[in-house]
Design a protein around this nucleic acid. Structure first.
Lengths: 209, 209
DNA sequence: AGAAAAATTGTCCAATTGGTCAAAAAATTC
DNA sequence: GAATTTTTTGACCAATTGGACAATTTTTCT
């Protein structure tokens, strides 16, 4: 019986797949696709290697499944940007949601970063279609706000790029950040939020001198 | 004869090591340390595998050498920030220098990013000492500028983090950026520079509303 | 309970990989 | 130009790795 094609998964199947995915996220985010081994995933999950291969047909399949589950979650906060709201509130809220994800889900952020960094072999499709479409919509919202004089002019695409870059930096490069700042994670992210809020506020609400 | 301990390298040694490093940078930046293989480096360099191992005692040694050469280059622009100059000119200049590096040396940026992302096994020392020291100095310069009222208050550390994040994003995540924007590299980096200049100008020169 | 299906595992295999080594080839030195 | 040193390479090896598979155990269904 091919598990992949089956529609309803049993309790055990759901549990074990979830266990495997959780362990795989740990291992993949630390070592990348090629650096991760089935043995490491086996140890991390408490299962045997053949048992893992009973639930997934290959290492690549596990990687693909983990990453797929991640993509939606990663793009989700974008959908919460409402064209009806106050532009600055909406964009500040988006930044804060992204920063929160960096704090609470650094492994996911790192896995995603590694994937893109190494050429997005599995996700290039999604990036060029689904993500692009969603982002185009949100940039259109920004352009509309600008036209309605609710927002100073700003390049929408690069605005989103910079929000992604600045917020994810605290997850992806945490080692660097923490080796420079000797703070608790709480302090660090509080300072980061204060700084990013300030940057965004100034960028969005003031005409360039 | 142990090449590592020899002080003067022959012409051939210099050439071959340089060839190997160049090829290794390509391979390491695309696949990471663990994903890169000696065979790939051999093909990319046009040398045989044992010949590579004649010049470097191990794959890790090559990686270490490539990364070491990179670190200085990567931190270098920081040194050009002069406390005598105009704060905004100095920081804008720094941002532009970093953005230029992202455009011209994406492989180096990606290799560095991968290293940090995966826990900086070889560079954590340098980060915590040399980089931290240099950055501390430059943050002190910023704090001095603020005290002298030449600059509005800004968190110096997070300012640098955000400059790093925003500029390196265009190299490290180029696949994502390019799958969203269908522009030539020239246009893309021109727009990026314009946007980042605007963000930085507004961040540095205007009191938050 | 007993049959059938699903889950688990020990054992094994072929491919890849980092690295060795002795011999050959090329360059350098005298 | 012969001797010596340096460079290059083909052949090889041991370890790791992704994965196959048959046998066993556990769960599910009637």
């Amino acid at each position: 019986m091919n598990l992949i094609e089956k529609k309803t998964l049993s309790r055990i199947q759901k549990e074990k797949r979830s266990t495997i995915k959780k362990a795989a996220l740990e291992v993949f985010s630390e070592y990348g696709l090629r650096g991760a081994t089935l043995d490491k995933i086996a140890v991390a999950s408490g299962l045997t290697k053949p048992n893992i291969l009973y639930y997934y047909s290959s290492k690549d399949q596990i990687y693909f499944d983990v990453l797929s589950g991640l993509l939606d979650e990663w793009v989700a906060p974008l959908h919460n940007i409402s064209s009806d709201g106050d532009p600055i509130d909406e964009l500040l809220g988006y930044m804060k949601a992204k920063l929160k994800m960096s704090k609470q889900k650094p492994q996911e952020s790192k896995l995603f970063a590694t994937e893109i960094l190494h050429g997005a072999p599995l996700t290039q499709n999604v990036l060029a279609t689904s993500l692009k479409q969603t982002l185009d919509e949100k940039v259109a919202v920004i352009d509309k706000w600008i036209e309605e004089k609710k927002l100073e002019y700003v390049n929408g695409y690069h605005l989103f790029f910079s929000i992604w870059a600045m917020t994810q930096h605290y997850a992806d490069f945490d080692i660097q950040v923490k080796s420079i700042l000797n703070q608790s994670e709480e302090e660090l992210f509080d300072d980061a939020e204060e700084y990013l809020t300030s940057v965004l506020l100034r960028t969005l609400s003031v005409r360039a001198p």
